[in-house]
C-alpha cells in the first residue's frame, strides 16, 4: 500500500467489536464493527503481501462458494482469501434453473451444513435469498451479492480502499454514477459510507434512480431507515468537488428494457470522462466495482488513469474477505493477534 492511515490502534483483534454470525448487508453493522473489519484487513493485507502468502489460521475451516449467478472476480477473491488462510474452499456453481423452488435453496444450504461446512459464500439473482438461507442453517452465510439488494463484502473493500488512501471519510464527497436502481454495490456502499460519515451522492438517469432515496420520499419515522444520500441526475453537478468517484457497471439489458434510449446516449450523458473529472478534486480517487464496460460508463483513459485505484480494490478485496472469514470463524488463538503469526515467512 502506498499511503499509510493515521488510525488509532484501539480496535485490536484481541477485543474486536464483532457480533455477526452472518454477513448479509451493512445495514446492521455498527461503526465499531466496520472498524474491526478494516483493521483486521490491514493485517490480512500484510499477510497477503508476503513472499509466500499462506498461514494456517483457518486450517480445518470449510468454506463453500455457492454461486447461483456467474461471477469471476468475487468467486476467485473468496477462494483465494480462504486458501491464504489455510481453509478448505470448494466452489459450487448451482444453475438457477435447478433452483426454481425455495425448498431447494433451503435444502442445499442444509445439505452443505450437514457436510460440516462452516461458511457458505452465496451469490444469488434474487434479493433477500441469503436471508432465507441464513434462517435455515447454522453455517455462516456471507452474501456475495443478492439481486439488486446488497453486496456487503464489496462495500467493505471499498471502504477499506478509500480509508487506506484518504483516511477519515467524514465529510468526504463520494459520488456513485450509474445504474443505482439495479446496483447492489451502490446500496451496500451507501450504508457503509453513511456509517463512516461520508457525504454520499448518487447520480444517474431518472429511469435508473429508485424511489425513496430522497429523505422527503419517506415518512419522518423512517428517516433513518435509509442512509442519507444526495440524488443528482446531472453528472457535472454530481462530480463537483468529489473526493471519490465510483462508476457503476451499466448492463446492456437496460436498453432492451426501455429504461434507456441507447448505450450511446447514456455514454454521452453519464460516462465518467477525463473532461468531466476536472470538476472533481484534483487528487480524487477513481473506483469501479467491476466488471467494467469501458466506453460506456467509464472512459478507458480514466480507468487506466493516474487517479484510478481499481486494481487496488481488487487486491484489497482478498484481504477484506480474509478478515471476514477469520472473524466469522470465531478463532482468536493466533499469537499476537496476527492470525497465523507463528508462520511469518
Amino acid at each position: 500500500m502506498t499511503a499509510e492511515v493515521a488510525r488509532t490502534p484501539q480496535s485490536t483483534v484481541e477485543t474486536p467489536e464483532w457480533n455477526h454470525q452472518h454477513i448479509l448487508d451493512l445495514d446492521d453493522f455498527s461503526v465499531a464493527e466496520i472498524e474491526t473489519v478494516l483493521s483486521l484487513a490491514d493485517r490480512m493485507r500484510e499477510v497477503l503481501d508476503r513472499r509466500i502468502p499462506r498461514v494456517p489460521a483457518l486450517r480445518g475451516y470449510t468454506v463453500v462458494n455457492l454461486f447461483f449467478e456467474p461471477s469471476t472476480r468475487t468467486r476467485a477473491s473468496f477462494e483465494l482469501a480462504g486458501k491464504v488462510l489455510g481453509a478448505d474452499v470448494l466452489s459450487v456453481t448451482a444453475s438457477t434453473s435447478s433452483v426454481t423452488k425455495g425448498e431447494s435453496l433451503i435444502d442445499t444450504v442444509r445439505t452443505l451444513r450437514a457436510m460440516r461446512t462452516d461458511a457458505i459464500v452465496m451469490r444469488h439473482s434474487m434479493s433477500g435469498a441469503p436471508y432465507l438461507a441464513a434462517a435455515h442453517t447454522e453455517a455462516s452465510i456471507i452474501n456475495a451479492g443478492d439481486g439488486s439488494h446488497a453486496h456487503p463484502t464489496q462495500a467493505l473493500l471499498d471502504l477499506y480502499t478509500m480509508r487506506s488512501r484518504i483516511g477519515d471519510l467524514r465529510g468526504k464527497r463520494v459520488v456513485m454514477v450509474g445504474d443505482i436502481s439495479h446496483s447492489r454495490v451502490a446500496r451496500s456502499d451507501m450504508w457503509g459510507l453513511a456509517a463512516m460519515g461520508a457525504d454520499v451522492v448518487v447520480c444517474g438517469p431518472p429511469t435508473l434512480l429508485p424511489r425513496g432515496l430522497r429523505a422527503g420520499d419517506r415518512p419522518a419515522h423512517a428517516e433513518s431507515a435509509m442512509p442519507p444520500v444526495t440524488v443528482e441526475t446531472d453528472i457535472d453537478r454530481a462530480l463537483d468537488g468529489a473526493d471519490v468517484v465510483m462508476a457503476l457497471r451499466l448492463q446492456s439489458e437496460r436498453q432492451d428494457g426501455g429504461l434507456l434510449p441507447s448505450l450511446h446516449e447514456y455514454a454521452q450523458l453519464y460516462q465518467v470522462t477525463q473532461e468531466r473529472l476536472k470538476r472533481a478534486k484534483p487528487n480524487h480517487l477513481l473506483m469501479h466495482p467491476g466488471p467494467k464496460n469501458e466506453g460506456v460508463e467509464i472512459a478507458g483513459t480514466v480507468a487506466a488513469g493516474r487517479n484510478s485505484i481499481i486494481e487496488e480494490q481488487v487486491t484489497n478485496g482478498v484481504a477484506v474477505r480474509m478478515a471476514l472469514l477469520y472473524l466469522l470463524s470465531g478463532r482468536t488463538e493466533a499469537p499476537g493477534g496476527v492470525p497465523g503469526g507463528e508462520m511469518r515467512s
Binding site: G128, G147, S148, H149, R211, G212, L213, D217, A225, M226
Partner: peptide
Amino acid sequence: HEGWVATRLGLRG
C-alpha cells in the same frame, strides 16, 4: 409496493 422499502430491499416495485 414501489417505494422506499422496496428500494431498501432491492426488490422491484
